[in-house]
Nucleic acid binder design. Structure first.
Lengths: 223, 223
DNA sequence: GTCTATAGGTAGATAGAC
DNA sequence: GTCTATCTACCTATAGAC
C-alpha cells in the first residue's frame, strides 16, 4: 500500500511524462492521486519546486554514479562503456523521472534553471573528459572533436527513454550492451587494429547502479 | 518588411521553441508579433491547428527529401550519408520549427496525434530500410539490430537542434560531415576492410536540401 | 492530514464595431 | 484587417474548518 506522498510522486511523474509539465494541472495530479488539490500543498511547496526536486535528484544520481565509474575503472574504453551502460540503465529503470528531467528544462526559471543547467554541464563534462583522454591517447581513433562526440553519444543514449518498454522483446541490459557497442564503434575504439566490442572489456555488473526491478511500478509508457 | 502573417509565424516559432507550446499563450504571440490577440484569429484557426501545421510541413519536407535521396543514390553508404547530411542541415537551418516538431508531440491530441505519429514512422522507416539493406548486404558490419541502430542514429542526429548556433565556430556543413562520419563508423561501413568516411564517397551538395542562408532570420537560440 | 470554499489571475476563443 | 470588450473555463495557491 502506497502512502499519500508516494501516490502523489508517482501520479505526477506519470502525468508530467505523458502530458508534459505545463499541460499538467495541480487538479490533474490530485485527481490521479485520489486526493483533493488542496491536500497536495501539505506535501509540496509549489508546482515548480516539485519539478526542480525531481530533476535535481536524478541529475545528482547520474553525477554520483558517473564519478564512481570514472574513478573505479582505468582505461577510457572501460570508462565509456561503464558510463553508457549506467546511463541507459538509468533511462530505462527511472524512465518517467528521467524523461521529465530530459524534456522539461524549458519549464524552469531563474536560479533554478541555472542550478539544473550546471548539473547537466557537470555530468556532460565527465563524459567529455573520458572521450578526450581516449582521443589524446590514440585509443579512440574516430574522434574529430571530443565536444561534438560527447554530444552525439550522450544524446543517442538518452533517446532510449522515449521508446523503451519493460514489456518489449529486448531486456534493458541487452539494449545497454548494444548501445555500448555502438558508442565504442562510433568513437573508434580498437583492439589490435580491429574494432573493439563490449565483450573484449572486462566489465561486470551493468545493473550495479540501477537494477531492473527497482522502479518497476513507476512505469507505463505513452506514444 | 514582414507581413503580419509572417510576423506571427516567426514570433510563434520563437516562443514555442523557447518556452514550449503549452507555456506560450495566445496573448504572448500577439504581443511578440505586435498585434492584438483577437487579430491572431484572422490568421489562425486555433492554437492547436497552428502547431499541427508547423509539424506537418516539416515532416512532409523531411519525407520528401529522404525519398529523393534514397531514389537518387545507389549504395547504402551513400544513402545513409545523404540522409544524415540532409537531416542535420534541416535541424540547423529550420532550427526553431524542427525543435518544435521534435519536442511538442505530447501537445497533440486525437486524430492529429495519429497523423503526425504516422509521418514520423514513415520517415523513420526510410532510414530503417537503408540500414537494413546495408546490413543484409554485409556493408554495415556493426549493425546488431537495424531498428535499434535506426533509433540510435536518428536520435543522435536530431540532437543537433538543441545546441547548434549559426554563430558558433563550426559551420553547419562541417557539423553535418562530422555526424556523417560518426554514423558511418557506428554502423561499421568499410572500404577494403578499413573504416569508411564521407570523403571516400562521391557526394556533392550537402546543402542541396536546406541552404544555410534560407531561414537565417528564423533563428536565435536559448539555453 | 484532509477537506470545502474561494481568491485573484489568466487561459483560448468569439462578437461585433470600425 | 485590426481593434475593444467580453464570455466561460480553468489555473495556482491559500484560508480556515474538522
Amino acid at each position: 500500500m502506497l502512502s499519500t506522498g508516494e501516490k502523489i510522486v508517482q501520479a505526477s511523474l506519470r502525468l508530467f511524462a505523458q502530458k508534459g509539465f505545463e499541460a499538467t494541472s495541480i487538479r490533474d495530479i490530485a485527481l490521479e492521486s485520489g486526493i483533493n488539490s488542496a491536500t497536495l500543498y501539505y506535501y509540496i511547496k509549489s508546482k515548480d519546486d516539485f519539478l526542480i526536486s525531481i530533476m535535481n535528484d536524478e541529475l545528482e544520481g547520474l553525477i554520483k554514479n558517473a564519478s564512481e565509474i570514472v574513478s573505479t575503472l582505468t582505461t577510457p574504453e572501460q570508462q565509456i562503456a561503464g558510463l553508457v551502460q549506467m546511463h541507459v540503465m538509468a533511462h530505462g529503470v527511472h524512465q518517467l523521472s528521467m524523461l521529465v528531467t530530459d524534456t522539461e528544462f524549458r519549464a524552469l526559471h531563474g536560479e533554478n534553471k541555472v542550478k539544473i543547467r550546471n548539473l547537466r554541464k557537470k555530468y556532460e563534462q565527465i563524459w567529455t573528459e573520458v572521450i578526450s583522454n581516449g582521443e589524446r591517447e590514440g585509443r579512440f581513433q574516430h574522434v574529430e572533436d571530443p565536444k561534438l562526440s560527447t554530444l552525439a553519444v550522450l544524446t543517442m543514449c538518452t533517446g532510449v527513454v522515449h521508446w523503451y518498454s519493460p514489456k518489449g522483446k529486448k531486456s534493458l541490459v541487452t539494449i545497454s550492451e548494444n548501445y555500448t557497442n555502438m558508442v565504442l564503434h562510433l568513437l573508434g575504439a580498437k583492439i589490435e587494429g580491429k574494432a573493439l566490442s563490449i565483450h573484449d572489456l572486462n566489465l561486470h555488473a551493468s545493473t550495479k547502479y540501477y537494477s531492473e526491478t527497482d522502479g518497476s511500478d513507476e512505469q507505463e509508457m505513452m506514444m
